[in-house]
Amino acid sequence: MSPENRSPAIAAAIILAGAALVIYFLPAIVLWIGNFSPALGFAVGAALLLSFFLVFWLRARYQQRHKR
């Protein structure tokens, strides 16, 4: 693996590891927050799931800007 390919691979691995941790603990987090407010539990769960896609979307935009 060349040095140019190593940095994106490490970044993607870190992002995926973080997402895996969030998804692993997501049911416990949502149920705990859902004890206070079911709507808030839903909102937090949806935000955590959407943040996974938001990180990759932001990374793609960053790479498009700095590729030129």
Rank of each mutant, 00 (worst) to 15 (best):
R68E: 15
A28C: 06
H66G: 10
S51M: 12
P27W: 01
L54N: 09
R61D: 08
S2C: 03
A9W: 06
L49R: 00
A17K: 02
F53Y: 07
A46E: 06
N35L: 15
G18P: 00
L48M: 13
F56Y: 05
F52I: 12
L54E: 09
S51C: 12
Q63K: 11
W32N: 11
L58A: 08
L21Q: 07
A47V: 08
H66L: 15
K67Q: 14
E4D: 10
Q63F: 14
S2R: 11
W57P: 01
L50A: 10
A9L: 10
R6D: 13
L26Y: 00
A47R: 04
P38V: 04
E4V: 06
P27C: 03
F42N: 04
R61A: 08
S2M: 06
I33E: 01
I23F: 13
F36Y: 14
V44C: 03
I33V: 15
A20Q: 03
A46D: 04
A20S: 07
R6S: 07
G45I: 01
P38W: 06
S7A: 15
Y24S: 06
A28D: 12
N35P: 02
P38Y: 04
Y62M: 14
P8H: 04
G34S: 07
Y62G: 14
F52V: 14
S2G: 13
A11E: 11
Y24G: 03
A17Y: 04
F25L: 09
F52H: 04
A39N: 10
N5Q: 15
A9V: 04
R59A: 09
A11F: 05
L40Q: 13
G41C: 03
M1D: 08
L40R: 11
R59V: 03
S37A: 05
E4I: 10
S2A: 11
A47F: 09
G18N: 04
R59L: 05
L50Q: 05
F25S: 07
R6P: 02
L21G: 14
A46K: 12
P27Y: 02
G41Q: 02
